[in-house]
Simulated scan of single mutants.
Amino acid sequence: MIFLTIAAVLCGATGWKTINIFGEAQLDWLRQYRPFSNGIPTRHSIGRIIRGVKAESMMSCFINFSNTLRDRDGKEHISFDGKVACGSKHGDDIAALQLMTAMVVDNGLIIRQHETSTKTNEIPVMQSMLKHMDIENAVITADAMHCQKETATLIREGNGDYVLQREKESR
């Protein structure tokens, strides 16, 4: 069900009905990867099952899978950056989604991502991410906001190296 949903969304599906339509249209292709012995479930079943999946569990599984794809031959360059998700703000009631992302620069693989509540909250979020990542033999980069002693200490404790830029002082 998760495979069907991810494949459908990547191909432009925007709801349970369009996921079902995608599944019916692409059943032969889907069966190359999963049996779908009972065919494609109804849109109601798809919605019920996917709503029952905890987002944090799904993200953890995806990150673990992504980390198995990482190339560990040389020094890996991991870049941390905070961004606002385009189109995520809805009026005055719903604030824009802000994410801190850790990406392997050489292949564009996102290996960890975490929501931040504000731009200034990026520092503790990055530090928390570093505590839970394998950064051994990696070079970590981030913008000037992250030029913090605690951040550098966490990177060194994880046996990584860092390039953190300091903002130019005004004269």
Rank of each mutant, 00 (worst) to 15 (best):
P35A: 06
T14A: 11
T42E: 13
I19L: 06
W16H: 05
A8F: 10
G23Q: 03
A13C: 06
I50N: 06
K17C: 04
A25V: 00
G39E: 05
E24R: 07
L27D: 02
L10V: 06
G52H: 09
I6C: 10
G39H: 07
L4S: 07
L30I: 01
N38D: 12
G12M: 05
K17D: 12
S37F: 02
A7C: 13
H44I: 02
V53M: 13
G12E: 04
R48K: 14
T18I: 00
L27A: 01
I21H: 12
C11Y: 06
Q32K: 10
R34S: 11
L27I: 08
G52E: 11
V9Y: 10
S45W: 12
C11A: 14
N38Y: 10
G12Q: 03
G52A: 13
N20Q: 14
R31K: 15
A55Q: 12
P35C: 01
K54M: 11
Y33F: 15
T18G: 03
N38Q: 11
N20C: 11
T42K: 11
V53F: 15
Q32D: 07
R43L: 07
I49K: 13
I6T: 11
T18H: 08
R48S: 11
K17M: 10
R31G: 05
K54Q: 15
T42P: 04
A55P: 06
A55M: 13
F22W: 03
D28I: 01
S37P: 00
N20F: 10
N38V: 00
T5E: 09
